[in-house]
């Protein structure tokens, strides 16, 4: 059992060790979906939602694996749980609101290969978080992902109007901005002791 308080776990996942900018998890969607704020915001919410559900499910699966004494099945079990969670979330959202489903549409299946979800599950296991701690960690990780995504989308929308040298257009520019954002987030390092 890990003694960390819940508030610190949330801040740690969302800001101090931001999942995207400090731990390099979920870089592919971060680069791919951050061109427009209109797509970045729904994607962020979808990830927060899947993260929370996946945190609950992987905690249960891990307890089961410990009980069965089969830790070598962890990777296979986690990826199966995450893939089915995404499917489940897709169905629930469709049943709940058709508009929301259409807005998220193509992003939902992409979340399965978002390494931030798998990374969150593995880190929570490695740190031996309890149930509530795992859930808070999942929510914090999702919020951190959304924060980075929305910040980047806002910056990229502004940059569309500026005169960028032709060789820097595209991925190189996005990575340069990510580097500077990452430096800014390093400023939070002392937070929470």
């Amino acid at each position: 059992m890990n003694p960390d308080p819940l508030g610190f776990i949330f801040l740690d996942a969302a800001i101090i060790n931001n999942f995207v900018l400090a731990a390099f998890l979920g870089i592919c969607p971060f680069l791919g979906v951050s061109a427009k704020l209109k797509t970045a915001v729904p994607m962020g919410f979808a990830v927060i939602f899947v993260m929370t559900v996946a945190a609950v499910c992987t905690y249960g699966v891990n307890q089961l694996l410990i009980y069965l004494d089969a830790p070598y099945l962890r990777i296979i079990a986690y990826i199966a749980v995450i893939a089915s969670t995404v499917q489940l979330v897709e169905m629930v959202i469709k049943w709940f609101s058709d508009t929301l489903f259409r807005a998220l549409g193509i992003f939902l299946p992409l979340i399965t290969t978002n390494c931030a979800i798998m990374g969150m599950a593995l880190f929570a296991t490695a740190r031996e978080y309890g149930f509530m701690q795992t859930v808070v960690y999942g929510v914090g990780a999702g919020v951190g992902f959304m924060l980075a995504l929305v910040l980047m989308a806002g910056l990229r929308e502004q940059l569309e109007l500026s005169d960028v040298p032709s060789i820097a257009r595209g991925a190189a520019l996005t990575l340069l901005i990510a580097g500077i954002l990452s430096m800014a987030f390093m400023g939070f390092a002392g937070l929470g002791g």
Partner: peptide
Amino acid sequence: PPGAFLVLAGWLLVFA
């Protein structure tokens, strides 16, 4: 962490 982003961006710039 920022170094990783900047070095990769640097390589992409060199190749472009």
